[in-house]
Structures are given as C-alpha cells and as structure tokens.
Amino acid sequence: MDVIGEILQRTAEDAEKYKPITVEKHLDLEYDLGTLLAVDNNDFDLAKLRRNQNDYFLNLTRENTQLLINKIWELPTERVEEAIVTKLPPQKTVLPRMKPVPKPKPLTKWQQFAKDKGIQKKKKTKLSWDEQLQKWVPLYGFKRAKTEKEKNWLLEVPGNSDPMEDQFAKKVEAKSERVAKNELQRLRNIAKARKISVPRVGVINPDASSAKELQAAVTVAKASTASLGKFQEKLPKEKEARGISELVPGGTRKRKLPPVPATVEKKENLAIVDSILNKRPKLDIESAIAKQISNSHVSSNHNENSGSKSYGKGQKANKSKGAKKPKGAKGQRKGKGGGRKRR
C-alpha cells in the first residue's frame, strides 16, 4: 500500500507542477485559428496587476495560450509519421500588406489606343501552313529568316517602278526602316512613361508627311529669322499653322482681345460685314450658266437693276414676236405669284 500511496502522491505532485488545462473566463475569447490568433476582450484585474505586474501577465498569457491550444485540439487531427497534425481553417483576419500596392505599368501609345477603341489582341499560332513551300512555317524566330529566303528567291518588279531598281535591296531597306521605326516608338513610350520631355524631331520624311505637318514646318521655318519672320513674304492663300504657338515666338500666340465699349465693337463688326458683302463676287461659271438658263427659260427680263420700267418693254417685245398662244394658267409666272395686278 505504501507503493500505491507513493505513486498517488507523486502524481498529485506532478499535477500540481502542471497547471490545469481548463481556464475560467468571464468573456469567451475570439479565435481566428487560421492565423493562430486569439483575442481576449476581458478587462484586466487591476488589483492583481498593481500587486505583481509580471506574474499577472505571465499567467494571463499562459491561460490564453492554453485556451488557444484547447481550441486547436478540437479540430480533427490525424497522425502522419508519428506526428499529430491538423489542418487549420482559412484565416478570417485580413492582414495589411507590408509594401504599397504596385502602380500599374503605364500603357504604351498603342495599348492606350487599343483600349479606347476596344481592340482585343488576337492569339496567332506560331506555325502556319505555307501553300507555296508546302510545309509548316514559323511566324517569327527560329527558321523564319530561312523560309523568307526560300520563299522570296524571285521578286516581281511592280509595273510602275523603275525596272533597274534592286527589289531585294528595297525590301531589306523597308524592313530595316520598320525596325528603326519600332525602336523609335519604343523609346518614345519609355520617355512618355517616365515623363521625360523629348525634343521635337521636325519633319523627317517630307514625302510621307501630312499637309498639316508640312504647314507647321513652314510656319516655324518662317519665324526662324532674326526678325522672327516679320519680313518674310507670304504666298497668296497661305495660312498659318494652328496649335504650334509654343514653337513660334510672339505673333501667332492667341491673345485675349481687350474689352471695348459695345458701340465700338458694333462698328468693327459692321466694317467686317461690309468687307465680306462688298467682296467682288468670284466668277462662278456654273452659277452664271444657271442664271442664264433661268433667264432664258422665263424669257422675260430678270435683271434686277432694270425694274418696273423695262417690264413693259419686255412685254412689248414679246408681243412683237407675235402670235404666242395663251398658256392656260400653266405658264411660268414672274414674281411672287398672285397679288395685285400692276399695269
């Protein structure tokens, strides 16, 4: 019996060394087992805290940890190679990210355009069947240049081109030109993304430039004299390019007109109207012919400067031609039609 008593005593001592696994709490803890997190919402026991802070916190932490571990033991466990493992549920707490969200890459000019227009990228297969070579040909990369060579061993001379021109050299040059253009655009996109201002290149290829670009170039070139183009001659119908005011010093820059009294403004406007209305009319052959046709059609005097006086004459002339049948209300009438008879 002594032995049993000893064992019992020892186990009681052991049990005293280990604290109990049950913990009493006023409020239940909140658990998020996915992140192994337990939150204790209970108030501190102020009396114990003041008496012995360290012991109190140590004990509190042990108790809470015990509760968390109790909770983990409630999960289904399995045994893998002598170790007891459990699968934690997905986490509920959202952790803030350490680093700021990366900024989206700035779009290239084409990407921006495609996005605005809703153009979607089409996936192309790398290999495609070539009818001429009767084999599968890669779209780019390995063996592409070789197939190109195989395919274009002979080139047609276009009907409208110089027969002595080397079409092969032309093709090579066109290709290198395209590559260079792509490189330029790539650099331009980088500059745009990094907000670096790139100097303007002006007109590179006058043959391929638009009329607008050329006009801008002319306007800039004209202003590039010591006197800012003040004494440059103008062609008869030459217009100045618009929207390049930052390139041309002075002159073409838009300025807000100073306010003037309304009467002065009216006078200015009237002067402009007069100058428009008094413009010598262009000789418009088509309208002249149309007028002539309408005059001859009505066969009476339609000249505006000869008024009612000549009207009688015209009638007389008609009569003198003689013996015209009455038209039975189907003829063309002059004037507004109807109204007072003027005799």
Partner: peptide, 13 residues
C-alpha cells in the same frame, strides 16, 4: 470672350 477678327470673319461669311 470677344471673337477674334479672323473668327468674326469666318462666322459672318
């Protein structure tokens, strides 16, 4: 703002 002379001319034309 007031119309510039050029624009007034275009408008009246």
């Amino acid at each position: 703002k007031r119309l510039s002379e050029e624009r007034t001319r275009i408008l009246f034309e």
